[in-house]
Design a protein around this nucleic acid. Structure first.
Length: 613
DNA sequence: ATAGGGTTAG
């Protein structure tokens, strides 16, 4: 064992365990040149180099007549296998150990838990108890992790109840794994009660906070997440950076720029370095909140960019329709020797489709398959359908769908139908509609797209038939909502909303604005968007769509010429799109709308989406 | 010796 190896070891696995193992094997050996010593060395070496250790090392261990000393050695060795994800060898060794103690079982269980083999873990857990070994905190933690992986709330609850009955002590780490289960299974009452009861002083209690935060994010409870974050800031001096990362991702989903900015400032205040993790989530947050400039600023200041960081910047550009920038970034990334993953390509393809870059999109799709050997997933294929369709290559779109076996996907047909509508190909559109309704008979958006297509081709009867079919089948349109942040307050609007305190002001200004916009060429496209409002209630309701209310509210409550940012939970409707284009011209205001699909930057009477969305 | 939370897509 030379210095070179030890040096390597300190670099890579400067792990006390390795050294202790080697020393133990050395003690276990009877002579200085016993084969075991040699095997230990090679095992140690392979730990360093991360290659699988030779199996013969196992058999060299003569543990049949084991002393306590050799059991410890065996456990160490077992641990090495488990840590290096070599569960095959771990199992073999485990089977050869005659007197297994709690640690022996626990090491194997935790190895399988890490590998995600929950069923194996459950079986071992049962077996160890029948063999008289009692689980400790570590064992239980691994078992809960597997319950969580499998969404097996019942088993987890059973074990937890058994622990309570038997007075098993729950330390914070174990508590966190139970917490994780309850959060993943969305039983927030349990999670919250457990959270309250965990030892408060433990420094790793910080992880419990983090679990609560990410639990809320997984379940889309962004407001609860932000609330608990504020509580953390108040109660703890410093919130750790991993939790902050989760909170930022919650902000990205809500898309509220000002709150995201506060958290960014908070990170700077507590003096945390912004690594690739935080950087990626900040970039994502800024681009989803409508400020690509801030995203770029974060991107440029990260010292050690990784593939995720590049990908978030590329996807951000895609979201804002900046196809060329996205491609430029991607090429730069390749030049720097960073290997793109499937999500990177998704970003690139979606950038191409949002910007109508057909050839480039096709080239990157091939590159993904041929140069990087990534099998196209359904999302990649959907992007390609978007790309072909937007370019008006409807026959190619159709062929692509069947060649790639994606005809069962709702998103594919929705995208195709939008393209038929854009290119006014009614015949293809009707066929696509039939396919869509077969796949998605209860999807409200399918009916709306379909009747919009009929309407934009002046086929009013057919549009009406689609609407009544939707009613017959009891398909309800998801209510449209838009929101805007002014200072610390988030204002949410639904269509025809009268609940806002500034209600009167909003509606009277809206009327005035519509009048002035009509003078510069805007006309309410009543018939075109009738479907969006479910009932034929005419011009009034359309003029009161939630995004119009939010825009007007923004105009009233912000300084002249400052940008207005709106978020909408559905696709923006044709009429609102035209309304906002004209308003941006008349008032010389930048209006930025994030809809369910992408961003629209309205400026000087036109939109960054090029009227395709 | 063995256990616990983070980033990018949709």
């Amino acid at each position: 064992m030379g210095h070179r190896n030890l040096g390597l070891c300190s670099l890579k696995y400067a792990n006390h365990v390795c050294l202790v193992s080697v020393i133990n094997y050395r003690i276990a050996a009877t002579t200085p040149f016993h084969p075991l010593w040699r095997h230990s060395c090679s095992l140690f070496h392979s730990t360093i180099t991360n290659a699988p250790p030779p199996l013969s090392a196992l058999h060299a261990l003569s543990i049949k007549n084991a002393s306590l000393q050799t059991l410890n050695s065996a456990n160490h060795l077992l641990n090495l296998y488990a840590k290096s994800n070599n569960m095959g060898n771990a199992q073999k060794l485990f089977d050869e150990i005659p007197q297994k103690n709690t640690q022996t079982w626990t090491i194997l269980i935790s190895g399988f838990a890490r590998a995600g083999s929950s069923q194996v873990v459950f079986n071992l857990f049962r077996e160890m108890q029948t063999k008289g070994a009692s689980p400790n905190q570590y064992t239980l933690s691994s078992v809960f992790k597997c319950c969580s992986l499998d969404n097996n709330l019942q088993l987890g609850k059973g074990i937890h109840a058994w622990m309570l009955r038997n007075g098993v002590d729950v330390d914070v780490a174990l508590g966190n794994s139970i917490l994780d289960l309850y959060l993943r299974c969305k039983v927030f009452e349990y999670a919250e009660r457990l959270f309250e009861n965990l030892p408060y002083k433990d420094v790793v209690r910080i992880v419990s906070w983090g679990s609560m935060v990410s639990g809320y994010v997984w379940n889309g409870m962004y407001e609860d997440c932000l609330k608990i974050f504020k509580l953390m800031v108040r109660e703890l001096v410093v919130v750790d950076i991993r939790t902050v990362t989760t909170v930022i991702s919650a902000c990205a989903n809500v898309g509220i720029l000002e709150f995201g900015r506060h958290i960014h400032a908070y990170i700077q205040k507590i003096g945390h370095r912004i690594d690739a993790y935080v950087g990626s989530s900040l970039i994502d947050m800024y681009s989803k909140s409508g400020s690509l400039d801030d995203a770029w600023m974060v991107f440029r200041q990260i010292n050690e960019p990784n593939v995720v960081l590049w990908t978030s910047m590329i996807s951000g550009c895609a979201l804002h329709g900046q196809g060329r920038q996205a491609i430029g970034l991607f090429e730069e990334m390749l030049k720097q020797g960073i290997i793109p993953n499937e999500i990177t390509f998704l970003g690139v393809l979606s950038a191409c489709s949002h910007a109508g870059l057909l050839e480039e999109g096709f080239r990157y799709f091939s590159m993904m398959k041929d140069a990087y050997h990534i099998n196209p997933g359904v999302e990649h294929c959907t992007s390609m359908v978007d790309l072909y369709g937007r370019a008006g290559r409807l026959m190619e779109t159709k062929n692509f769908i069947f060649e790639n076996d994606i005809s069962h996907l709702t998103s594919v047909w929705k995208s195709f139908l939008s393209s038929c509508r854009l290119h006014r190909n009614v015949e293809m559109g009707k066929w696509v509609s039939e396919m869509l309704l077969q796949v998605a008979p209860s999807d409200p958006e399918a009916y709306i797209l379909l009747s919009n297509m009929c309407a934009s081709n002046h086929r009013w009867d057919e549009a009406a038939r689609v609407r009544s079919l939707m009613h017959q089948r009891g398909v309800k349109k998801q209510p449209g909502q838009s929101w805007i942040q002014i200072k610390d307050q988030i204002h949410t609007f639904v269509m025809g909303d009268r609940s806002h305190p500034q209600d009167k002001e909003i509606y009277s200004y809206l009327d005035v604005l519509i009048g002035r916009l009509k003078e510069i060429g805007y006309s309410l496209e009543v018939k075109l968007v009738m479907q969006d409002v479910e009932e034929e209630q005419g011009e009034v309701l359309i003029s009161h769509h939630s995004e119009k209310l939010a825009v007007v509210f923004g105009i009233i409550n912000t300084a002249n010429r400052s940008p207005i940012r709106i978020i909408k939970n559905l696709r923006i409707c044709t009429d609102c799109h035209s309304f906002i284009k004209n308003a941006s011209q008349l008032l010389d205001r930048e209006i930025i709308v994030r809809d369910i699909h992408r961003f629209h930057h309205f400026k000087h009477g036109s939109c960054s989406c090029g009227d395709y969305w």
